[in-house]
Design a protein around this nucleic acid. Structure first.
Length: 286
DNA sequence: AGGCAGGTGGCCA
DNA sequence: TGGCCACCTGCC
């Protein structure tokens, strides 16, 4: 049984394009459209949630009874954060391309996803496309995660994953990433304070902590910091951002480190939000 | 039918 | 540091 549809305590007004980009644009890999219902259904933590857009463009959600809470859903959508001020602080006044991107996806924000599953999904993301990343997240959850009803499953935590033979993970379409997942699971299960320590650390230190894990390089670390740890200054440089930055700002696309430095300086403390706008625009180009 | 994909780690100059 | 290549596997 589903709870009733409701709006957020701070209304979230988005276009269909922005909502799609928010839920299915590469921040999270666990949302899908529900065939007859014209809404999105997603899983995070032990929440099973549906989201839809009303005529006035206000986002509404409902929670599967027994599987989630309003508090967690609002935390996930980062409702209690001043996104308007954050957007306004970006250098769009002096950067016409950024301004275009922001106009194309008005209201786009950064989800605040649970740390563990964010790390997991971005370790799975290397050298793959979104469809495949979604598939392996789905498969691992189906096989090892708790059932939440409607055929959905929660992400199994690191402890559960640490006990699964690498071979079985490989069978979940993980490929060579299975070893990374296995080893990371062992490390994080042994170090129960990792997440707490990371959240309390400045970005630079938090990034080093992440990069000490197998399968986590600069790009994956930045994604985890941005989408799963609330560090908005993290600036992931992937192939899309490389394209964008080299074409628009004239930087050498063979130097991702330089691009990350540029991003941090040019876009400021919410560089990660700017990144998301550029990313969304770039991907929407034919 | 094969190359390639939202990278990383390891090795070499 | 900077450049190259193997690594799995499924999709276009």
């Amino acid at each position: 049984m589903w709870g009733s549809w409701q709006g957020f305590s701070q209304p979230l007004n988005l276009t269909h394009d922005t909502l799609r980009e928010l839920l299915d644009g590469g921040q999270s890999f666990r949302w899908r459209t529900v065939p007859g219902d014209s809404c999105w259904q997603g899983v995070f933590g032990h929440n099973l949630v549906q989201v839809r857009l009303e005529g006035n463009r206000e986002v509404e959600f409902r929670i599967r009874e027994g599987y989630g809470s309003v508090r967690e859903v609002e935390a996930y959508f980062a409702i209690n954060f001043d996104w308007a001020a954050c957007q306004d602080a970006l250098p769009w006044r002096s950067d016409p391309h950024l301004e275009n991107c922001m106009k194309a996806f008005p209201g786009l924000r950064i989800l605040r996803q649970p740390f563990g599953e964010t790390l997991f999904s971005f370790i799975c993301s290397t050298a793959r496309q979104i469809v495949q990343i979604k598939q392996c997240c789905e498969t691992v959850a189906e096989r090892f995660g708790e059932s939440l009803g409607c055929g959905t499953h929660a992400w199994p935590d690191w402890k559960v994953l640490s006990e699964i033979p690498e071979k079985e993970l490989r069978a979940c379409k993980l490929g060579y990433r299975a070893r990374y997942i296995s080893e990371t699971a062992t490390i994080l299960t042994a170090d129960s304070g990792f997440e707490k320590k990371l959240l309390a650390s400045p970005v630079r230190d938090a990034k080093s902590m992440l990069m000490s894990l197998p399968g986590v390089g600069a790009k994956v670390a930045d994604c985890v910091l941005l989408f799963g740890a609330g560090k908005l200054e993290a600036f992931p440089v992937d192939t899309w951002i490389k394209k964008s930055i080299s074409r628009v700002y004239g930087l050498d696309d063979s130097n991702p480190t330089g691009m990350a430095r540029f991003g941090r300086i040019h876009f400021g403390k919410a560089a990660g939000l700017a990144q998301q706008f550029l990313f969304a625009w770039e991907r929407s180009q034919p």
